[in-house]
């Protein structure tokens, strides 16, 4: 009986395994091979195995570390901003949305726009001569700051990203907030807990798993940002707005350094995998501690 069940399990898993081998396993093997090779567009089908030179090039390239620092900063800043704003909106708007659920639709609109379009849109919105933002700043204050020079581009890009993705965090937090049983809040109220005490001792602890997951998802999205940054500022003056995906894209297509680009993506993959592995390990420890 057990052996039949075992066979069923194997058969049922076969499509998934084949899919993973084809669509993940094969590219990973090709990528690994390319990352250890001298390869260009001309020699795409005949790469020459050269060892770890590409990894050395990437790891000793100041531009790689500059891009990593940009991605890390961007990921952290936008994740924190989106989660903070999303949480505030979820808590303050919850009573209103409970009565008028249709309000949810306009709040979700920014999520419907492709990130590349958002970049193009802000290129227009912030343009000194045709954009509404500088126009009104000139009208009201007689001047308008530079939004996209080397010093301010990072913060402008962060605001653009935050404006687009805060609704995502808001949606998750609103659902988590609504899932908390009213009885718990009422019991706390009867026990004399004020609004802030209820927020900090009831709501936030019960929403903690959602908060962590949302922050993590937003960090990953921010860390791997490409579209809106690329359409708004490109890689920026002196490479100042080059995220890691833009670094990889430019190495691959602009420089034709395919080995270097693939080596950088392998490094990125290993770093991401380490973070995931670390989080999984921490989660396992937490579960063990609560048993």
């Amino acid at each position: 009986m057990n052996s039949i069940k075992n066979l069923d399990w194997k058969l049922l898993n076969t499509p998934l395994v084949v899919f993973l081998l084809l669509f993940l396993g094969f590219p990973v093997i090709v990528n690994l091979y390319y990352s250890l090779s001298e390869v260009s567009f001309q020699t795409l089908r005949a790469p020459e195995l050269t060892g770890f030179g590409n990894y050395l090039t990437v790891l000793t390239d100041p531009a790689f570390w500059q891009a990593s620092w940009f991605s890390l900063r961007f990921g952290v800043v936008t994740a924190v901003a989106e989660c903070a704003l999303g949480l505030c909106l979820a808590i303050f708007l919850a009573p209103l949305i409970e009565k008028h659920s249709a309000l949810m639709a306009p709040l979700m609109l920014p999520l419907m726009v492709a990130p590349a379009m958002v970049g193009l849109m802000y290129r227009l919105v912030l343009h000194e001569f045709v954009g509404p933002v500088p126009y009104y700043l000139y009208e009201w204050f007689g001047n308008s700051p530079s939004f996209l020079n080397a010093e301010s581009a990072f913060w402008t890009l962060s605001v653009v990203e935050t404006l687009q993705w805060t609704p995502f965090a808001f949606l998750l937090f609103y659902m988590a907030y609504e899932a908390i049983p009213d009885e718990v809040r009422q019991a706390a109220q009867i026990d004399g807990a004020g609004p802030f005490q209820r927020l900090f001792y009831i709501d936030l602890p019960l929403m903690a798993p959602t908060l962590i997951i949302a922050a993590f998802i937003r960090f990953i999205d921010g860390f791997r940002v490409f579209d809106n940054v690329y359409t708004l500022t490109g890689s920026g003056p002196g490479g100042s707005t080059t995220s890691l995906p833009i670094y990889i894209y430019e190495a691959f297509f602009k420089q034709g350094a395919i080995g270097k680009a693939v080596a950088a993506s392998v490094v990125l993959f290993l770093a991401s995998f380490s973070v995931l592995f670390g989080l999984n390990w921490l989660s396992g420890r937490r579960k063990g501690a609560t048993k």
Binding site: R123, H127, E128, F129, A150, A153, L232
Partner: peptide
């Protein structure tokens, strides 16, 4: 030159000159 010139290319240049400023 405009303060955001470090993000300017063809289209932005046309808009700046075409604005009369």
């Amino acid at each position: 030159s405009p303060r955001d010139s470090l993000s300017y290319e063809y289209a932005e240049t046309n808009a700046a000159f075409g604005s009369g400023q």
